[in-house]
């Protein structure tokens, strides 16, 4: 996302060089939105994490109390662990599937209808995705388990066993997001010149060989960018858990964002919830930073 250079100063007949007042008018609504609903809440969120705040009485500064509590809170650590596990399963599966789908679309047909179908699940909300899979994967009546039983296997308690619940939620979200990710990768594939594949074919390289030696190396910067976007998104998982499991069974799907919501709106401990949000923010910033560095260091593609 390179920012374009400032516009060259044009020499113009009219002398209206300075539009400061008009510009102020034009950016005013956006500026208010930016300051009031992005900058201020960010600062306030950090401030609230150092307070005791129940929403009814004004926040009371209590230093590092929330952070001390957080470090000692086993539920927090469990939810951090569950979240990282979820992100791992979700990202590995999603990236692999998306990469394969994107390459297939590139090599088979570039027609819009195919990309449209693959993207369809992304058009519905996480809530809709969670609802339909709650039904499909229902232990007794879901078509998924009906098929599994008909094939002679044991029914699987997808969303009600602590071993299955996170992989299942991860897969539900893969279903919704894989098409979008595949299209991002597909867009990246378009930047690889077709001549490279033609040259490969001339040399008698097979499709798998070309995938390894042309596609993957040239796609690495794009993949890194896609990973930053999807990992950051994946850490914010909430909707699917809130609809499908509400954190259960016990705490086995209590992802961090759901725990934060529960602490804030179930127990009205906004200070503590803010402290955990700050922790999540820090994790995201560190991940973005690391991935960004890795991308930059590795940007040896066509250039």
């Amino acid at each position: 996302m390179a920012l374009t250079a400032p516009l060259p100063k044009t020499t113009k007949a009219r002398g209206r060089r300075d539009d400061t007042r008009l510009a102020l008018l034009f950016i005013l609504p956006a500026l208010i939105g930016f300051l009031v609903f992005m900058v201020w809440p960010t600062l306030r969120g950090i401030y609230l994490s150092f307070t005791k705040f129940n929403l009814l009485t004004p926040p009371e500064f209590n230093g590092l109390d929330n952070y001390i509590r957080m470090v000692q809170d086993p539920v927090f650590w469990n939810s951090m662990k569950v979240t990282v596990y979820y992100v791992f399963v979700n990202i590995v599966l999603q990236t692999m599937f998306a990469l394969v789908i994107a390459v297939m679309m590139q090599r088979l047909t570039k027609r819009t209808w195919l990309r449209g179908i693959v993207l369809t699940p992304y058009l519905v909300s996480n809530v809709v995705a969670a609802m339909v899979f709650l039904w499909i994967l229902d232990y007794q009546l879901g078509i998924g388990n009906t098929v599994i039983a008909a094939l002679g296997f044991d029914r699987i308690p997808f969303l009600s066993s602590d071993a299955w619940v996170i992989p299942t939620i991860a897969l539900i979200n893969v279903w919704r997001h894989v098409g979008y990710t595949a299209l991002l990768i597909f867009a990246g594939l378009q930047t690889i010149p077709e001549t490279m594949y033609e040259a490969g074919r001339m040399d008698g390289a097979s499709e798998p060989r070309m995938f390894r030696s042309i596609t993957v190396p040239l796609l690495r910067p794009v993949l890194a960018l896609v990973l930053i976007i999807t990992v950051v998104g994946s850490f914010q998982v909430f909707d699917t858990v809130a609809i499908a499991t509400r954190g259960g069974p016990v705490d086995s799907s209590r992802v961090l964002q759901f725990y934060i919501y529960d602490v804030a709106f179930g127990r009205f401990q906004f200070g503590y919830a803010s402290a955990m949000s700050v922790a999540l923010l820090l994790v995201l910033v560190v991940i973005t930073f690391i991935q960004y560095r890795v991308t930059r260091a590795d940007s040896s593609d066509l250039n």
């Binding site: 809440p41 969120g45 609230l48 914010q236 923010l281």
Partner: peptide, 11 residues
Amino acid sequence: MIPAIFTLLPN
């Protein structure tokens, strides 16, 4: 750079 989720509670 600000993840949407972080601003929800203060908002």
